[in-house]
């Protein structure tokens, strides 16, 4: 029997004995493919207020893509050439739209109490993503390598020094801020946003507060149905 054949004949054990098996079982229970990639959404999702979360994700995609171009070409390119100035502006304005959409998304979720229905972790990861994004924006402003970045850095350092953070985070240190901006904070944001989106898939999109009166009750699981009989 070849290795290839054996791989095709593999069948997962009914009762996993390893942590990988337990993880697979957990994912199969909490996040089946129907939840991970749903084709339909509840009727209340057909509202403009539900658009701003995915608009924020779209803006984040443009930020990452334009930032990657800026990182490859460098400031000697994006401060001088027309194409570089275009990508520099694209990066800047996608950040503006990112925060614009994220704040409206936050308004909507706050006023519909989006932490209802066991969605506290979804709310917390969203808030953490917002806070870390503010740090990414600040470090982005101070690594522009122009007079604007110098002004912002020397205004920000007074505030940070007043809190004591200045002892280990120095906004006038270009190297430190550049690495934090292009690697550390994007990595944290990527993990937080991925977790946030997966939690939305696990728990579903939060309904409006008055939707509970009109939405159908959840379909009972197989054990619940069998328990009734």
């Amino acid at each position: 029997m070849s290795t290839t054949t054996a791989r095709h004949e593999f069948a997962p054990a009914a009762h996993p004995t390893t942590w990988i098996g337990h993880l697979r079982g957990l994912l199969e229970r909490k996040l089946p493919y129907e939840k991970l990639l749903p084709e339909t959404q509840p009727s209340y999702v057909a509202s403009w207020i539900y658009v701003f979360g995915v608009a924020t994700l779209g803006a984040l995609g443009v930020i990452v893509a334009s930032g990657a171009v800026l990182a490859f070409e460098g400031p000697a390119w994006y401060h001088v050439s027309h194409t570089g100035l275009f990508f520099n502006s694209l990066h800047f304005w996608s950040v503006q739209l990112f925060f614009f959409f994220m704040v409206i998304h936050l308004f909507g979720k706050f006023w519909m109490a989006a932490w209802r229905g066991n969605r506290a972790k979804t709310w917390i990861t969203g808030m953490l993503a917002f806070v870390v994004s503010v740090g990414a924006a600040l470090t982005g402003y101070v690594v522009q390598t122009n007079f604007d970045s110098q002004w912002i850095a020397f205004e920000a350092k007074d505030g940070l020094n007043a809190t004591g953070l200045g002892s280990w985070f120095n906004v006038a240190n270009l190297g430190q801020n550049l690495l934090i901006h292009v690697f550390l904070l994007p990595a944290i944001i990527a993990v937080l946003v991925a977790t946030h989106v997966l939690l939305v898939r696990v728990h579903g999109v939060v309904p409006p507060i008055d939707a509970a009166k009109v939405e159908a009750p959840p379909v009972p699981t197989v054990p619940e149905r069998e328990g009734v009989r």
């Binding site: 509202s47 403009w48 207020i49 658009v51 701003f52 614009f100 704040v103 409206i104 308004f107 909507g108």
Partner: peptide
Amino acid sequence: GAMLALFVLAL
């Protein structure tokens, strides 16, 4: 103001 206006319009 623009964010608040867009929020109200979305509703």
